[in-house]
Computed example of a mutant assay.
Amino acid sequence: MDDRSLETPDTEPTAARWVASRSHGPYAAGSAFLHAPSFAFQAWGGGENQLIQTGRHLEGFDLPVRLFHPWTDRLIDARVLHLFGMSREGLELAKAARARNVPVVLSPICWYEPRSLWALEPTVARKLAAVGLWSMRRTFPAFSGWRRELLQLADRVLPNSEDEAEQLIRMFGVDRRRIAVVPNGVLPDFGWGSPQLFRERVGDFEFVLFVGRIEPRKNPLGLIRATRRLGLPLVVVGEAPPQHENYERLCRREGGDRVVWLESLDHHDPLLISSYAAARVFALCSWFETPGLAALEAALAGAAIVITPHGSTRSYFGDRAEYARPGRVDEIGAALSRAWREGPRPGLAAHVASNYLWDRVAKLTAEVYDQVAD
């Protein structure tokens, strides 16, 4: 492990300060320009964390990075343009970069799951349209569209797992030779945490933990119902993104006095790290995950994991987690019961520490930059 890539919680700036400092002012020649859609940081999630931690740890390898600012930055100055997430905004930027002979790297951060499309679309018409488009893409990967165009423009595509890579090949015809799998990562801080701060500020009790957005895709409501049936305490860390406030109110109403609610915490907040360390079980029974950064953090902290089978979760956790489908409250309950009773699977924390720390993610990313830019 290269210690230059690690910063301690005492000295590392908050994510917001880091974003601000890398978005304005002068930048080094040959910087990698990192870009996310302009709406991305309005509702914090795993994609935003992936961008920030990748950037921070690339700097640990002495690679200059810049968060692309369209009003002041010139693409011609970039060594490489790295897009996080797929958007029409990113497509136009990729076209401009290619016109200036600037290499384009794309981390799609995507998963197309027909079960989630059917479950989450609000009307039957939209359910049928969404699943129909998925079926068309699956059958005719050469079917035109802006996502396919963006994927074809990228010099390298960096899915987070082999499962995501196979999906991109099947649905969009991406050339495997342009794919380099770069996994999601986790900070080693989560493996060093103590439960003491949580016990002092919140309480000294055993509990199931959920960390994430309070929205239908993450399915905290299904988790709340399952824990209430079992009589297990649940701690929820997170808040609703815009337009999901009614869903959060429903979750709070159903949770009642069996759920402890904590507001969304900065990624380096000692209370978040302590919450993972104090949790007996961590649960993320979403409609899909790729693979759920919070689940990796909790696994490194030593919690037993209950997670959705939809997405790329099995690529990361294998047989070291309990799996429960989001639409089955009884199944979630059974998985929680096993995890509560049996504890974390042997070797889980060591597996995460060996394969998914951010310094390794940054090293793989830097190797891609070298391939496309030199």
Rank of each mutant, 00 (worst) to 15 (best):
G193V: 11
L223W: 12
R156K: 04
L296F: 04
V65L: 04
V124G: 05
E149S: 13
L91D: 08
R228N: 14
S161K: 00
V237Y: 01
D62Y: 11
F205S: 02
A15D: 03
F288K: 01
P122A: 02
R74G: 01
Q42T: 10
H57V: 02
H57P: 07
P188E: 09
R4I: 02
A78M: 05
V329R: 07
V260M: 09
F143E: 04
G145T: 14
P103W: 07
L75V: 10
P195H: 08
D3F: 00
A43D: 11
R138I: 02
F198R: 01
R178W: 04
R156E: 01
R201V: 13
I307Q: 06
R213F: 10
T72D: 09
R56L: 03
G302C: 03
S38C: 05
P159W: 13
P26L: 07
D2R: 07
Q152P: 04
V372T: 10
V281T: 05
R229M: 12
V124I: 01
D189P: 07
V186F: 07
G212C: 06
L151D: 02
E367Y: 02
F39V: 06
L265W: 09
G45E: 15
P103L: 12
D3W: 10
V80M: 12
H24V: 12
E254K: 06
W111C: 02
I76C: 15
E248H: 13
S31P: 03
H35R: 10
A353P: 13
S116L: 09
Y112A: 15
Y112R: 08
A226C: 04
Q371H: 15
Q50N: 06
L150C: 04
